[in-house]
Amino acid sequence: MASSETLTSQEYIQHHLTNLTLGFHPEHGLGFAHSSADAAAMGFWAINVDTLFFSILLGWLFARLFKGVAERVTAGVPGAAQNFVEWIVDFVEENVRGSFSGRNAMVAPLALTIFVWVFLMNFMDLIPVDLIPHLFVQLMAVFGADPHHVYLKVVPTTDPNATFGMALMVFILVLYYSVKMKGVGGFLGELTLQPFGKWGMPANLILEGISLLSKPVSLALRLFGNMYAGEMIFILIALLYGGGILLAGTAGVLQFVWAVFHVLIITLQAFIFMVLTIVYLDMAHQEHH
């Protein structure tokens, strides 16, 4: 518990769950939100700086590592980095080949980007919950900021903006390719003419519409929910450290166990996001589903 002396447990948790939000406050003008109420008051026209910063940083890391390998890639004996990258690329390619029956040069790079990027963003969850926020608070204190109002969430995928952002892009692609492959009529027909035939059109539309809209929502919420819950448990474990030697020892064990388990979860969630994206796009390319 970094700044625990003056914080209650509730405040500590709340503090950890608040993004660093930059926006226009109706009363204070342009600036960082000093509380979640401030952030809410800023409405839509605000930016979660931490989410953006870490997601872009991690995406940049991904791009840099893979680009570096792609530049020096050789069909001969691969180096360690190339071997590692090839391993991931091979894995993604295999999944795409297994699930995607159409021809589209974009699906595999999309899947690779999703898998690695989401994995990296999820991976931030394994860094002790207070480490980076605490360092950030120290840094901001130099500029005279009140430590209680310096927020930082290091795991972008615990911000629904990030997960919905990706899911919406995938959804847009699904719509785009549905229309491109089947034509507007074909796509509308798919939405309205099955499963009950043309006389059950309203029922068809409701069923198919829900199934269509549930794709991005489930995609985004599954990832968000898993990572948010995992982060929450790390925060709760972190709270135990303040409760004396016995509890702190228990917390250490718990944190280790949960982190080990979480390694599985973050990989699995990245994998699920990737596979579902491939499957949704495959459906968009096919005439019937």
């Binding site: 939000t21 995406g59 040069a105 903006n161």
Partner: peptide, 28 residues
């Protein structure tokens, strides 16, 4: 935890990374 402009920023970021991957990483 509000949905705000970050959503669009993330969409653009995502699109840029996918484009980058598709252009420079995947093919070679």
């Amino acid at each position: 935890m509000n949905i705000n402009l970050t959503l669009f920023a993330q969409m653009i970021t995502f699109a840029v990374f996918v484009w980058f991957c598709m252009k420079f990483i995947w093919p070679p």
